[in-house]
Simulated scan of single mutants.
Amino acid sequence: MPAVPVAADGSDYAACADGTCEVLVSGPAEIALSGTAGISKLVVRAVEGNGIRFEAGGSSGSLSANCISTFYENGGGSSCSTAPREAPAPVDGIVAMQIASVQDGTAVLRVVSGKPGPPPASLVPNIPTFEIPKPPFGY
């Protein structure tokens, strides 16, 4: 019989209130987060196959084992690997989520948050600015 997944914080979702935790999820759950990147609540809708379906920060999606989803002000992204991955390092302005493992309908969810604030400059969208010309004749 396969071993039951183990998470550092067990099923204690309150451990996620500071924005960083590793918890077991086996069904729908609402998890309070620190508010970094505008995400104060993560809603897990279901554990399915090798991952979860979730809602966070006004968006919804799915997260599979060996993938990391990141959320930051005005954006986000994800990356996947064919091999197990280490926990993501905290980065200011970013919330990262990872499924460390899934077994028999139970997922080990890692959430890692940096300090609140803007994300690194490389993630801030480059929005062109322009000066509005003044109308002629003092209008």
Rank of each mutant, 00 (worst) to 15 (best):
R45A: 07
V23P: 09
G93V: 02
I94A: 06
A87C: 12
F54L: 14
C80A: 02
R53N: 09
S40V: 01
N50P: 06
I68Y: 13
Q103I: 06
P90Y: 05
I52K: 05
T36H: 12
I52Y: 10
C80W: 01
T70V: 11
A56M: 07
G35V: 02
I94F: 03
K41L: 07
I94G: 03
F71M: 13
V91W: 06
G61E: 02
P88Q: 08
A29T: 06
C21A: 06
N66I: 05
N74Q: 10
P28W: 00
F71K: 14
S34Y: 03
A56R: 03
G76P: 13
I52G: 09
G51I: 12
M97H: 05
E30G: 02
S79G: 01
P90Q: 03
P90F: 13
I68K: 10
N50F: 09
G27L: 02
L33S: 03
I99L: 07
I52V: 15
V25H: 06
V91S: 13
S40T: 00
E55N: 11
A46T: 09
G93Y: 00
S101A: 13
G27C: 03
S40W: 00
F54Y: 15
N50Q: 14
R85S: 02
V44F: 14
L33N: 00
I39M: 09
S64E: 14
T70C: 00
P84H: 11
K41I: 04
S60Q: 14
S59N: 07
A37Y: 05
N50M: 14
S64H: 13
N50D: 14
V43M: 11
V43N: 11
F71R: 15
D92P: 04
E48S: 06
E73H: 05
N74R: 11
P84W: 01
V43R: 09
R45Y: 04
L24Q: 05
G77W: 02
Q98V: 10
A83D: 08
S26F: 04
G27M: 04
V102Y: 03
R53L: 10
T70R: 12
L24I: 10
A87H: 14
V95S: 07
P90R: 11
G93P: 00
G75P: 08
N66P: 10
E73F: 14
G93M: 01
A46G: 04
